[in-house]
């Protein structure tokens, strides 16, 4: 039978909750790790900070993309995940590349031009950003 445990990390002024469900023996090791984390707070702070930045939530990524695309919105039509960037908005290819450059710096990733060429929708752009953030 599996048991659950909720672990809370504090780092700087943020708090992270992880719900871990596992076999009791496995949980033991999770708790041991958690204990070490508390003991070695100094080292862990950086690790956790990195985890915070790299694990961008979907909502956060989409919000950031929409913020950059807002000036190119046409009419009342809202920008959604399905928005085809080059077609549904008044944005040319150069402006798309410039927007990508801003997003690169915001998320501290690089999106190669050939990858950008394959991206059509806001969802696809968000997928790419999340994938690259996770790989960091």
């Amino acid at each position: 039978m599996k048991h659950g445990v909720t672990i809370c990390h504090f780092t700087r002024n943020r708090c992270f909750w992880h719900k871990v469900t596992a076999h009791p023996r496995a949980l033991e090791s999770v708790l041991r790790t958690a204990h070490q984390m508390i003991v070695e707070t100094d080292g862990m702070t950086d690790t956790l900070e990195r985890a915070r930045v790299s694990g961008q939530s979907r909502g956060e990524v989409i919000r950031e993309i929409c913020r950059h695309l807002a000036p190119f919105q046409t009419g009342e039509r809202p920008i959604t995940g399905g928005t085809v960037i080059a077609k549904d908005l008044t944005i040319d290819s150069l402006a798309i590349m410039d927007m990508v450059m801003e997003l690169e710096d915001h998320f501290d990733i690089s999106i190669p031009m050939n990858v950008v060429a394959e991206i059509h929708t806001v969802d696809q752009l968000a997928d790419t950003i999340q994938k690259l953030c996770a790989r960091r």
Partner: peptide
């Protein structure tokens, strides 16, 4: 040339060495 190359291509901000540095660092 970027369309022809097999290499990965990344742009940096015009005349901005720090923008280039960020991209080299990320590699």
């Amino acid at each position: 040339a970027c369309k022809m190359t097999q290499a990965e291509v990344v742009r940096f901000k015009h005349n901005d060495p720090s923008s280039l540095e960020a991209r080299l660092r990320r590699l």
